[in-house]
Simulated assay, not measured.
Amino acid sequence: MNDAGERIQLKLLNVEDAEILLDLQLRNMAVFEEISASDRSDTFYTLEGQVAILERWAKAREEEKRYSFGIFLKATQELIGEISLFELVLDHTDKWIVGYVLDQGHNGKGYMSEALQMVLKFAFDEAGIKRVEAGALPDNIGSIRVLRKAGFQEIGRQNIKIKGKWKEHVMFAVDCPERA
């Protein structure tokens, strides 16, 4: 999917995007590390590390297990964030999770709300996903606002490991709307 909204465009990320993705990660390292459950070892912050991640994401996309999109400003084509849908199996139950990061210089401008609406449309209309879940740290008011604006409802709390420590997250879910 290459989908354009009012101010942003979503593009599936590929290996060719490794340099710009690395730049986004490096510019926002301190903030992203505080919220990300993914492995952020030293190799993560290398071009080779980003290429390896993008190769894994491409394989998972072929298997219909992950869809990772770059969030690009339409006006400049600058990569300002990343949003992914990925399937996890927890307690023998398949769950689709949405995770996202946005360049800190672009927070509070509505870009992530626009991106999340586009990704949910893709999930429900194109990928056949019936339910999407997400988690946010309780003090991440901006992320919680984005989720609620997109129709997510709070479903409980869950501990998620961030930088080797368990941190409580508020969990949210949204179901595919019934089609008439």
Rank of each mutant, 00 (worst) to 15 (best):
R7N: 07
I8P: 04
Q9R: 15
Q9I: 09
Q9C: 15
L12M: 12
L13Y: 02
L13E: 00
L13V: 03
N14W: 10
N14T: 15
V15W: 05
V15S: 09
V15P: 00
V15G: 01
E16V: 08
E16T: 10
E16M: 07
A18I: 04
E19C: 10
E19W: 05
E19P: 07
E19Y: 09
E19I: 09
E19K: 15
E19Q: 15
I20S: 10
I20W: 09
I20F: 09
L21Q: 10
L21M: 13
L22A: 02
L22G: 00
D23Y: 11
L24T: 01
Q25T: 05
Q25A: 15
Q25P: 00
Q25W: 08
Q25N: 13
L26C: 07
R27S: 06
N28Y: 04
A30Q: 13
A30K: 12
E33S: 08
E33N: 12
E33D: 10
E34W: 01
E34G: 09
I35A: 06
I35T: 14
S36A: 14
S36W: 06
A37P: 08
A37G: 10
A37I: 14
A37Y: 08
R40A: 06
R40D: 05
R40K: 13
S41G: 09
S41Y: 01
S41A: 07
S41M: 02
D42R: 11
D42M: 08
D42F: 07
D42P: 04
T43E: 14
Y45C: 04
T46N: 00
T46D: 03
T46K: 03
L47K: 11
E48Q: 10
G49C: 01
G49A: 00
Q50K: 06
Q50V: 07
Q50I: 07
A52I: 01
A52Q: 09
I53E: 08
L54D: 02
L54I: 02
E55P: 01
E55M: 09
E55N: 10
R56C: 08
W57Y: 12
A58D: 11
A58W: 06
K59D: 12
A60V: 04
R61N: 13
R61Q: 14
R61K: 13
E62D: 13
E62N: 09
E63F: 06
E63R: 13
K65S: 12
R66S: 13
R66T: 06
Y67N: 01
Y67Q: 05
F69C: 10
G70P: 04
G70E: 03
F72W: 00
F72V: 00
F72H: 06
L73T: 05
L73C: 06
L73Y: 08
